[in-house]
């Protein structure tokens, strides 16, 4: 218990620049793993797909379907790389913390980058900014601004609050689920197994395995939800009012 985060505050002597080293490290590791998986999966592409290529194509079709459900495929196809990358990155990130957690000293080094609220909020802010960007780009400034006074002008404050709320919920939902999963895993792992070593260690296996299974499920579902919500917010911004 009582793990801290390896912080590097006021980096390079800059006052506001704080690094959560484990999150940064895991972000980079996760990105590298995603990159390796995806590049391996799209090597030696053939017209008749073999095993790994099949998996990648299933993934593409899956994301395509999610985008197609949210919006017109004509406008939606430019978001396919974004959706694929988001899904893969969040999924792999979620999985990293389920498999193992590495504690050095009192600091938790190996975890899911998505169990850090700062990370998930960064992603959600990025997504919301992108939706606004594409809203302007696809509909034009006038239509985009009109979107804020729909369906009636006095809803403008609510629409503005919605933007902020979307950002917060999108990021915090992911963070909460993954963080809670890790809390419970480390509770089971350390508190239960560490109390009275030989006996409780074995006893801890059952809830450990059960919770890991559940965390895998949660991690998959959460990456799916993040993808779906991203595309839904995107479609609100890029499609004309119905």
């Amino acid at each position: 218990m009582n793990h801290g985060s390896p912080m590097w505050n006021n980096a390079f002597g800059i006052e506001w620049l704080d690094f959560n080293l484990s999150t940064s490290l895991m972000t980079i590791i996760s990105s590298i793993i995603v990159f390796i998986i995806c590049v391996l999966g799209s090597r030696n592409l053939q017209r008749r797909p073999r095993a790994f290529q099949n998996v990648m194509e299933m993934l593409v079709d899956f994301v395509k379907k999610v985008i197609g459900d949210a919006m017109d495929w004509k406008t939606g196809k430019q978001f396919l790389p974004l959706g694929l990358t988001l899904f893969m990155y969040i999924f792999i990130s979620n999985m990293l913390g389920v498999m193992i957690m590495v504690v050095v000293g009192h600091d938790l080094w190996w975890k899911s980058p998505t169990s850090d609220a700062a990370s998930t909020l960064t992603l959600s802010v990025m997504v919301i900014l992108l939706t606004n960007f594409y809203g302007v780009k696809i509909l034009g400034g006038k239509e985009y601004l009109k979107g804020y006074i729909r369906p009636v002008p006095f809803l403008l404050p609510l629409n503005l609050i919605e933007e902020a709320a979307n950002t917060l919920t999108l990021g915090l939902r992911l963070f909460g689920n993954i963080f809670a999963g890790e809390v419970l895993l480390s509770l089971i792992g350390e508190s239960l197994a560490g109390v009275n070593p030989p006996f409780t260690t074995i006893a801890a296996f059952v809830p450990m395995i059960a919770w890991q299974g559940f965390s895998l499920f949660i991690g998959t579902i959460q990456s799916y939800i993040f993808l779906v919500l991203t595309m839904v917010y995107m479609s609100h911004k890029v499609s004309k009012a119905h």
């Binding site: 218990m1 009582n2 793990h3 801290g4 985060s5 912080m7 590097w8 980096a11 506001w16 620049l17 704080d18 690094f19 959560n20 080293l21 999150t23 940064s24 972000t27 980079i28 990105s31 990358t85 990155y89 938790l108 975890k111 980058p113 169990s115 850090d116 609220a117 700062a118 990370s119 909020l121 960064t122 992603l123 990025m126 963080f179 890790e182 809390v183 480390s186």
Partner: peptide, 23 residues
């Protein structure tokens, strides 16, 4: 206090930038 991860508080701009740029 239950501080696992301990990233709940604070605003680590640096790691946020790392997140954004690496993504």
């Amino acid at each position: 206090t239950l501080t696992i991860g301990a990233a709940v508080g604070g605003l680590p701009i640096g790691s946020m930038l790392v997140q954004l740029i690496s993504f």
